[in-house]
Design a protein around this nucleic acid. Structure first.
Lengths: 334, 334
DNA sequence: ACGAGCGGGTGAATCGTTTCATACGGTGAT
DNA sequence: ATCACCGTATGAAACGATTCACCCGCTCGT
């Protein structure tokens, strides 16, 4: 494998000069520079980032660890983050923890060993012990889609309590009195918060809430929940699902067993992924600004890594969710 | 930042011994080992992969470059690849080229600089010049979802010609005579092949084909194509879309302008992503074994990187697609 | 005429790890 | 008594790039 020494020999200069040509071309005379550049061309020299990084002590890579890449919501976050990173000449690598604490931990260890420049994290493990390593080694991290106290770290999130409330209020206003919540696992703060939002609204209403908890936040779990929903009595007239994948699963279960949506069951989802509007019955959903979330989080993280002077103050950014009403809740009860 | 030297000092041993504790524990006596391990614990030592890699000459990372992470098909490929890599103690980083040759090139350069162990590539750029670097530096690569001659590289793909034919035959058998193909850009081999499959079937039939080409393979492009479709006369009675995202877009356009599916327009998609079955009208689609694709490709790649003896023979794996019939083509014409 | 300053270039030290030749005390065979 | 060997531990060389102190040959100001 060709290294900087080979280039230097070929061009008849020292390795220092080659390095300068690559990194600070203005320090090198035009003639030498072109001689070096042709040598690089001819040999097909590609610089070795690991050596570069060893010397520099840190890499040019940001990491993003998400809960589920199968959820387009997180893909959008990734896109926002990548865009912000790209503008700074950094790269983002995205890791899918699949909502499993051990996989998350495995990725985090890997990232620490890689000495990534910083980490964007949408955590499973709420305890934060996994981050001890980063703290010790001064690798900055920013939480995405999860609010944390500002003294702990910066975070960029969407107000999930408000989002849950938005959905619940909508259903109550439509006249529903038997409402179900199909929620993901309680370890996820998003799920806890959305439920809290729902409860805060329903407490002041005449509506009754039943909660079905699923293991995963995916379509298959939604189908299961849908099946369970069908067996309930009294059967709810409306269901709020903790995300759109669940909602699509529930909807599939209804369609396949001939239950009409929204006449017999109204459905509200969460995230407003692109597929929500294309569903069997277009889904009412709580929209989150995913791309902006990712972009903003990456921007914050980058600011923390470029510590010209003092480390910048931690920030807690909270976006507001927005209700998008579609067919799946078009009916009014009573 | 704490390094191996700090650990060595703390434990009162040499750096070589610390390295042995971490990498070949059996070479170290139990007492020394535990002394070193506690030192590691106390100091919170995390080994530096870049140094490790510099010495080793290559990393423990595989890369996967896909056309569009917004397409669940590629997410499934990624999952399959990750699983295969994980079993070998390797990690996969996934890059989204967004079907743009320049972004693809940018990622490939980055990966070469990182000296990744190998690359799984679903290429935009058909020319393959981008791979010159990998060839020179002996970084193995395997094509995913794209067949190439075996003397060039291994590849794992699905027979797109057969897939296109499958869809077309299905529509012809249903009695359709005016068929439209909503296809993605011709630079993508997948699109060319699927079209070829369609044409091979329609040539022997009484059906007429009109082709609408889109710039991207996403839902928005599908909506546009749907709108164009509505303006055609005679209007096709069936449409085959080069992937499910396009199909969902077309379907949305039909629903929002009151055209009944499948009565007025039958739709066939491609990939059979999870959302296809949950669509407004569940989509007939050509299923591809995405996970197996990724898993097999990674397995092949790994085999190429562990060159015990001679480099293994290049392989060309081609899976067969499968038609999944749903509501969107349930009608019979005439 | 002499030193300061400058553009352009050099080469060695450095980053943190792995690995390999070497050392050393002890044991068993000859 | 000598030697070979074993288990264990050591320390230095290597990996490839960056960086920094230094050097050389010029020009310019005084």
């Amino acid at each position: 494998m060709v290294g900087i020494k080979d280039v230097a020999r070929r061009a008849g200069v020292s390795v220092g000069t080659v390095s300068n040509v690559v990194n600070r071309p203005h320090l090198v005379s035009a003639t030498t520079r072109s001689r070096v550049l042709t040598a690089i061309q001819e040999l097909g020299y590609v610089r070795d980032e690991s050596a570069r990084q060893l010397r520099a002590g840190r890499s040019r890579i940001l990491a993003l660890v998400v809960l589920d890449l199968g959820n387009p919501f997180f893909v959008d976050i990734a896109r926002g983050a990548e865009q912000a990173a790209h503008d700074e000449g950094l790269h983002v690598i995205t890791c899918d923890s699949g909502q499993q604490a051990d996989r998350e931990q495995s990725y985090l260890s890997m990232l620490a060993e890689q000495r990534v420049r910083g980490v964007l994290l949408s955590p499973v493990d709420t305890s934060g012990v996994a981050l001890e390593t980063f703290r010790r080694n001064e690798i900055p991290y920013v939480f995405v889609d999860r609010r944390v106290p500002a003294d702990e770290a910066s975070s960029v999130s969407v107000d999930d309590v408000a989002g849950g409330a938005l959905a619940a209020r909508h259903l109550v206003e439509r006249g529903h009195r038997e409402i179900a919540l199909v929620n993901g696992p309680q370890i996820l703060a998003q799920c806890r918060d959305r439920e809290a939002g729902v409860r805060s609204v329903l407490a002041d209403s005449a509506a009754r809430l039943s909660v079905l908890e699923t293991n995963d936040l995916d379509v298959a779990s939604g189908r299961d929940a849908g099946a369970r929903l069908l067996g309930m009595s009294p059967r709810p007239t409306a269901v709020f699902c903790a995300n759109d994948l669940l909602a699509l699963g529930v909807l599939q279960a209804m369609v396949s067993s001939g239950v009409r949506v929204p006449e017999e069951l109204a459905i509200v989802g969460y995230d407003d992924i692109e597929f929500a509007g294309a569903a069997a019955v277009p889904l009412t959903s709580v929209r989150q600004p995913a791309r902006r979330l990712g972009h903003r989080a990456a921007t914050l993280l980058i600011a923390e890594t470029t510590e010209d002077t003092a480390p910048p103050a931690r920030q807690t950014v909270v976006f507001e969710p927005e209700l998008v009403v579609r067919e799946s809740t078009k009916t009014v009860v009573r």
